[in-house]
Design a protein around this nucleic acid. Structure first.
Lengths: 231, 231
DNA sequence: CGCTATAGTTACCGTTCGGTACCATGTCGT
DNA sequence: ACGACATGGTACCGAACGGTAACTATAGCG
């Protein structure tokens, strides 16, 4: 049912591309999304849109994400924030903020990672769905808290990229995902490298997953990949 | 929605950041939290919120924590207080108060420490959960009263920082904790130093813990650490 | 039946990340 | 005041990771 409105998220960034990419991804995930390109718009949108979570670029044309966070004052405690910052920014400033239930990510990030963090925070603050942090498909289980992956009860060790890829596949079981979709979600949004990496990592995943059972990752030639039950 | 209400705690401090950080941490721990920024608000909240414990900054804009404590009068005996004070403040005044079942901490403190003290006091006054003061994971035991740590029955000597770190890990068994989370909880909340310290202390802990058994602290590369059963 | 495009696998290398030993500073107790 | 110990910072090493590339396998199609 498409009328079920998901949690409201406000995305604030002055780079239109980021806003575009992020908000589309979040809408597709069922969130309600509003956007703002500067501090003034952000404050207006907080009033009008009443978001349950903010995705907030630290560097904005007219202010900083920190200032916005401060000016939110009392409401602040009920609106967690995910700060976006350049890779080399001093993390100390941010670190203090994460204790408040906030979090931060360094640009460029993967959308898969962002969605995962949003889900974690909303779950923690009880505003999200009471969905488990656990994804299951056939005899494959993935627990996002412990970061444990089990195939037929057997624990499987995955690297960070392998894990992101598998989680994305698991979040869209049976659906065929195109190469472009997977690259866009699992790799950093500005990844410009060879698209062949994907095949490599699919290969890695299959090797580790199928050591304990028949193949779950199905190739759809000319299109992409899909998670399907083995026959 | 399961709003299982934990013990009610009132946090009083005029620094919004402190209130923010502390109240979020306590809420996450399952406490019900109200806040106040000055003496007037504090008194009002004691009336309205009926907290079972106060976290009370000594220096407030309109009064001092001591005065608030005094004015609470008769109710006082049933509401223990944790005073917060700057490091170099006269600790003599505070020491007298701790005998009454109260406690004090100097800023900056670690959240892990604050939560531990709150738990201790609530347990003592019988208002807390009937949770044991003992944490156990596999063959690892930690007793918060005696500050004893046992691995496979063997006592292990830990320094203060090592102990806080281990306790935080034990309070989130199996869950992967990010570097930022650990630094935020185990080190003082304004710790801005090099995050490498963490690895150093993980190393110390492993050395001491794993002298009596297989590794319990598991590295999740690119993310953080988790307490896991050895396989 | 064989050619071509697409996918899979493996190997390799540069870089990053984590572990540990070592050192400087601070704190506490005697 | 001194010594011992805890804490935090630095440096260096090794391992793991990610991405590229080269080679192999396979499917689709004329």
């Amino acid at each position: 049912m498409s009328t079920a409105t998901g949690p409201r998220i406000l995305v604030v960034d002055d780079e239109p591309n980021i806003v575009e990419v992020v908000s589309m991804a979040l809408r597709y995930q069922g969130f309600e999304v509003a956007t703002a390109a500067n501090g003034a718009e952000a404050h207006a949108q907080v009033e009008a849109f009443r978001p349950q979570l903010l995705v907030l670029d630290v560097m904005l044309p007219d202010t900083t994400g920190f200032e916005i966070a401060e000016r939110l004052g009392a409401q602040r405690s009920s609106i967690p924030i995910i700060f976006l910052t350049a890779r080399d920014a001093q993390e100390d400033k941010l670190r203090g903020l994460t204790t408040g239930g906030d979090d931060y990510m360094t640009k460029p990030f993967s959308l898969e990672e962002l969605v995962a963090r949003i889900r974690t925070i909303l779950r923690r603050t009880g505003q999200g769905s009471d969905e488990s942090n656990r994804m299951v498909f056939e005899d494959l289980e993935l627990d996002d808290d412990t970061r444990e992956v089990l195939r037929a009860g057997q624990p499987i060790d995955l690297t960070a990229t392998e894990y992101r890829l598998l989680r994305y596949l698991l979040s869209n079981p049976r659906r065929v995902l195109t190469r472009a979709q997977i690259l866009d979600h699992v790799w950093e949004y500005d990844f410009g490298g060879d698209a062949r990496v994907l095949e490599t990592y699919i290969s890695y995943l299959r090797k580790k997953l199928d050591a304990h059972g028949p193949g779950l990752i199905h190739t759809v030639r000319g299109v992409g990949y899909a998670l399907r039950a083995p026959r």
